[in-house]
Design a protein around this nucleic acid. Structure first.
Lengths: 165, 165
DNA sequence: GGATCATATTTCACTGGTGAAATAAATTGT
DNA sequence: ACAATTTATTTCACCAGTGAAATATGATCC
């Protein structure tokens, strides 16, 4: 629908690697829209994605607990924000926070029973949408897409690594 | 690297359409990282993505001009934000703003020569990165990815349309 | 010519997130 | 036992973007 724009760019800038540029745009577009869709779903439950992600990580952690520091790593959030997320989730009774017994500098964050119930209630309504997204995709296509995305992710990792060094 | 988390979710919630959920996560992850990478590049030029996008649209418009209203549509930004973007780009001399001759309610925004030079200076440094992203992709793989992403985009369109109606 | 509609801007309060710096409290190293 | 380090929180100022409401101005309809 707005593919035309990029075509005109190509005329103006012949060095541009066309197909790759188009793929970038596609990835950014599709990724952005999925992100929006997720945000919207979460908004209806008064949650934001970083909070939900934190909750999911706790849910899927073996013992349902973690520490702010760990959660910062997993969610790639800053510690300032993690504290805020903790506050929000505690206020809603979805997690509990307390001092660790072994190392009392640490705060141990644990998902509550209500938190688990909440996750189990949240997820199923998301599935139909997820399935509709990939409607018409054969198993082969799904695994192709998965493979290509992983390949792309790997290249991005490499680029980041080079950048860092 | 953090695929384990989702595996544990699957044990807890057997109805979950595994492959699709994984694809979602992949898309969100890869899309997010590309977005970050773009933001970073732009940040080094003191630009934000909505400003850059606006500039690109102007660049690739046949006569290099548009109106705030149109740009709102194309960039899916609100009018408030579009005004702000205009202010920023005018201040940097990349666009000009003036009243339209035909309809004087309209403001006509036009990319300046400096704006065009800026775009032409900005884009080339992005190409190597773009090419590195798709390193190791054969032409077949690129067109496969493109096809699958378009298919996905189409499904998303349909979902949005159903939602709206 | 006056009501209505369209376009753009301004103001304002808000959201989600960032990043630095200061502080508090506990652990570790020696 | 004291310094250095680790962990978490608080405070603060900021950024990009949202959305509503009010305003200004010009166009259109009849």
């Amino acid at each position: 629908m707005m593919d035309e724009g990029i075509e005109r760019m190509l005329e103006a800038i012949p060095q541009l690697p066309v197909e790759q540029a188009r793929l970038c745009r596609l990835m950014l577009m599709v990724g952005g829209r999925m992100d929006e869709a997720l945000d919207e779903k979460l908004k209806s439950q008064q949650l934001i994605d970083s909070e939900f992600l934190t909750l999911l990580i706790l849910y899927s952690s073996p013992d349902g607990s973690s520490t702010p520091g760990e959660l910062c790593e997993f969610t790639s959030q800053g510690s300032t924000n993690m504290t805020r997320i903790g506050n929000a989730l505690v206020k809603r009774g979805l997690i509990s926070r307390g001092a660790s017994a072994e190392d009392r500098r640490r705060v141990v964050i644990r998902i509550t029973a209500a938190g688990r119930r909440f996750v189990l209630k949240m997820l199923p309504p998301m599935f139909p949408r997820v399935e509709a997204m990939f409607a018409g995709f054969s198993a082969t296509e799904r695994s192709q897409l998965s493979r290509l995305l992983r390949k792309l992710a790997k290249n991005l990792d490499q680029l980041d690594a080079e950048n860092a060094s």
